[in-house]
């Protein structure tokens, strides 16, 4: 009779056992903040559709210290999302070849982050220009 008895190890808590996985769980966790922010915008949009009184109620809620604190937390986590999104990008996209040479991973990450800065400034400039 065979004495084989392969032992399967449990996976519970796998992500706590390696700093690489802890980082992975943090950047995956940024999704909760993206979702929360999406819901805040969704509620705002519904208020807007309901009329001026409802919209002003939403605006007042946005000025509450807790709302500001919440948005600071969201800002931190969504910025972390930007950073991790472009950090992973060299692994997730097909190799980029320019002038016969493969673009280095750090260049791709850098270009993504630079695009974020440019897009952010354009967005802020547009909003500033349209509302001043």
């Amino acid at each position: 009779m065979s004495k084989r008895r392969p032992y399967v190890r449990p996976m519970a808590g796998w992500w706590r056992k390696n700093p690489f996985f802890v980082e992975y769980m943090i950047h995956e966790g940024s999704a909760l903040f993206v979702a929360a922010y999406g819901v805040v915008l969704l509620v705002g949009l519904v208020c807007l559709a309901q009329g001026e009184a409802a919209w002003n109620g939403w605006l007042a809620a946005m000025k509450h210290p807790l709302a500001l604190l919440f948005h600071l937390a969201v800002l931190a986590m969504i910025s972390y999302h930007s950073w991790s999104w472009f950090k992973i990008m060299p692994k997730t996209m097909p190799p980029l070849v320019i002038g016969g040479k493969r673009v280095a991973p750090a260049m791709i990450t850098g270009a993504g982050l630079a695009a974020t800065v440019v897009a952010s400034l354009i967005l802020l400039g547009l909003v500033w220009g349209m509302t001043r």
Binding site: N18, F20, F21, Y24, E28, I88, P90, K91, T92, M93, P94, P95
Partner: peptide, 22 residues
Amino acid sequence: TAVGYCSEVCPKHVDPANAVNQ
């Protein structure tokens, strides 16, 4: 889910994460 650790540990710099995601 693009964890990417496979490519970190590869002793031959194959970058399997890139192959999977392509």
